[in-house]
């Protein structure tokens, strides 16, 4: 085990895969000379040279498309979006090229590409820069979407993403980059489609991913003090989604709260709720509640922003509601 920050774990995964496979390269805005807008790619230009660590102009649709084109003829690009917000201008490339080329070609083509970057809220960056883009992308068959919460998963899942023969959207978080954790040494690869029990408990299941896992753990500690023992599931992978871990946990706790960033209309949370009610209807003792970003664009004002972003106190209230500790 080696303790490192989330950003270092991402960097290590990129570097190790680039060492292993000369077809892997990193492309995006400010990834090379500037060393990354969030310093994820720090040192990589020096190590791998400008042929493989490539700065682009502000052309998301352009370089996303170039990545996809290079991928169908055998390269294995890692495309960094400075933040996932900016993938919106490249949405067509992800939707119509990355996700469709395999099936549209009758299975002739593979698109082994990784799109990655920070997702979700940051701090007071306003409505155009605070999007949780996973909810748009999980809708699309042909894409895989993962959102690790810890340095270990960041490293292991990014390595899996780079080795995957389908397009993988890898969602990081600006507010997670400095989080530290133990990362196994050696060729550590975490397969997709498997959730993780972040905390065991018996009274209620808290389901989350990415930054919000840490908020759920904080809420679980506070609830433990009130005598409610929560199990916290870190989904890690949003598409594919681990149904087994959900059913197993709900069979034990009989109650669930899904907590994540993103608006309440549709999205990952609605999908999780649908799967649970279909697969474990008889196990449920209460309706499943969701704790989400409030149903409005993100405001700049610091207090309002915190009000809009889901917080531990809202998670606690939801757990108290499904365990009938409050009405």
């Amino acid at each position: 085990m080696k303790s490192m920050r989330y950003r270092e774990a991402v960097r290590e995964a990129i570097a190790e895969e680039m060492e292993r496979d000369s077809r892997v390269f990193l492309m995006g805005e400010e990834v090379a000379q500037y060393q990354g807008a969030y310093k994820v790619s720090e040192g990589l230009l020096e190590r791998f040279g400008e042929k493989r660590i490539i700065d682009t102009p502000i052309t998301e649709a352009g370089f996303a498309g170039i990545g996809i084109g290079a991928a169908i003829v055998g390269l294995r690009p890692i495309i960094e979006f400075m933040t996932w917000n900016f993938s919106a201008v490249a949405f067509d490339q992800l939707l119509n090229n990355a996700a469709k080329l395999r099936q549209m070609s009758g299975g002739q083509l593979s698109v082994p590409i990784v799109f990655r970057g920070p997702n979700g809220s940051a701090r007071q960056v306003g409505s155009q820069h605070s999007h949780s883009m996973e909810h748009f992308y999980v809708h699309v068959p042909g894409l895989k979407v993962v959102a690790p919460a810890t340095p270990a998963d960041a490293k292991g899942m990014l390595k899996a993403a780079i080795r995957d023969d389908d397009p993988v959207l890898f969602l990081e978080s600006e507010t997670l980059y400095s989080v530290k954790g133990d990362v196994p040494e050696g060729d550590y690869v975490v397969p997709f489609g498997k959730g993780r029990i972040a905390r065991e408990g018996k009274d209620c299941t808290l389901i989350s991913y990415s930054r919000m896992v840490h908020v759920c753990l904080e809420a679980a500690e506070a609830l433990a003090a009130k005598g409610i023992d929560c199990e916290v599931i870190d989904l890690r992978s949003l598409r594919p989604l681990d149904e087994e871990i959900l059913v197993q946990s709900i069979s034990k706790t009989h109650r669930a709260v899904v907590a994540y960033e993103g608006w309440p209309y549709g999205g990952v949370g609605a999908e999780v709720v649908d799967r649970i009610q279909r697969l474990a209807f008889d196990e449920l003792d209460a309706p499943i509640l969701r704790v989400t970003t409030l149903d409005v664009p993100m405001p700049y004002n610091a207090k309002l922003e915190q009000h809009v972003i889901p917080q531990a106190d809202r998670v606690i209230a939801a757990v108290e509601a499904v365990t009938y500790r409050r009405d």
Binding site: V125, G126, S127, Y300, N301, L304
Partner: peptide, 21 residues
């Protein structure tokens, strides 16, 4: 206070923003 530095708007003076993308 909802827009912040990047999103100044002033319809009266026909200043239609402050845009982030």
């Amino acid at each position: 206070g909802l827009g912040g530095s990047m999103h100044f708007f002033d319809k009266e003076h026909r200043m239609y923003g402050g845009h982030g993308i």
